[in-house]
Design a binder for these strands. Sequence first.
DNA 1: TCCTTAATGGCAATGGTTTCCATTACCAAG
DNA 2: CTTGGTAATGGAAACCATTGCCATTAAGGA
Lengths: 160, 160
Amino acid sequence: MPRGNGQGPMWWHGRFRGCGYRITVGREAILDVLTRADKHLSAEDIYIKVHTAYPAIGLTTIYRTLEILVNLGLVFKFDFGDGRARYELAEGSKRSAHHHHLICTDCKRVIDYTDFIDDEIELLKQTEKGLSEKYNFMITNHLIQFYGLCDKCRKKKGGD
Amino acid sequence: MPRGNGQGPMWWHGRFRGCGYRITVGREAILDVLTRADKHLSAEDIYIKVHTAYPAIGLTTIYRTLEILVNLGLVFKFDFGDGRARYELAEGSKRSAHHHHLICTDCKRVIDYTDFIDDEIELLKQTEKGLSEKYNFMITNHLIQFYGLCDKCRKKKGGD
DNA sequence: TCCTTAATGGCAATGGTTTCCATTACCAAG
DNA sequence: CTTGGTAATGGAAACCATTGCCATTAAGGA
Ligand SMILES: [Mn+2]
Ligand SMILES: [Mn+2]
Ligand SMILES: [Zn+2]
Ligand SMILES: [Zn+2]
């Protein structure tokens, strides 16, 4: 099993240990799958991938590990409206950079976009500051998604 | 049962009929509950409220009607992370104005905010335009939520 | 190497949402 | 107003992602 660079402890080991969590093969396998994922995976997607290399690891462990990862802020959990949660490595790892989502309400396709992010982040920063003060709320994260019809579904539906 | 103003067809009747849907007591009751709601209701919340006036209406009808309303764009469906969908009348009706959400990841409390909305909308318009062109996507809606710790949960947790 | 205890896996249980189908009731036509 | 075609309904069963339970395993500090 390739482990990122094949040697030393992974980038997340420290964080894990620091919170009292143990490093296990299952957890390494799950992080590995998430790290090399190029799309948004469901718990079962991850289970299947992990299963090919480690058939002993159960779906329950996938859920448990994902919950920890989400709480640690290492992974984001999304609801794209298809009835199952989707997971994606948080920025900070090489693979994923901060981005937002474009979701087709018809075929459920999800597009990551990083364009315009700079302007958005700029405004978000201000908004977060204002909201924090007014509502005495400590903002730690945000979710921005645009919904509509994708390229293909647009054609399938009406003209225009 | 008060019906908004007590006479003529409701504001949504036209839209409903236009799409080939029939007007039924159940649907009127559900819209009525949504119209006078002051918070985000789950399907069951709506069922309970409707049930006091119309005990004959079942939970299944609530779900079916909500699906139609969401598809028509009259109602927004949200996932605030507590395991059940929440519904809210879309703007356009008197009650609800366009707003975004502030969600406490600890107690799941949701705050509607309309502050800073103007600046946000301004940027969103530009972003939507850019995204539409680049990805050939027809954007019809957006979702913006900030996550963090609310006033109370902040105190309960660590100091600071 | 040993021991404490976090972690695990399989399976049952949970619970929100959907499906099914026989019955009801809109509402357009006459 | 009455009628008929069919959309809408309700009750209960089915669905299915996620969680709980508990006996067993294995991290990893001593
Ligand atoms: Mn993404
Ligand atoms: Mn709201
Ligand atoms: Zn699509
Ligand atoms: Zn809170």
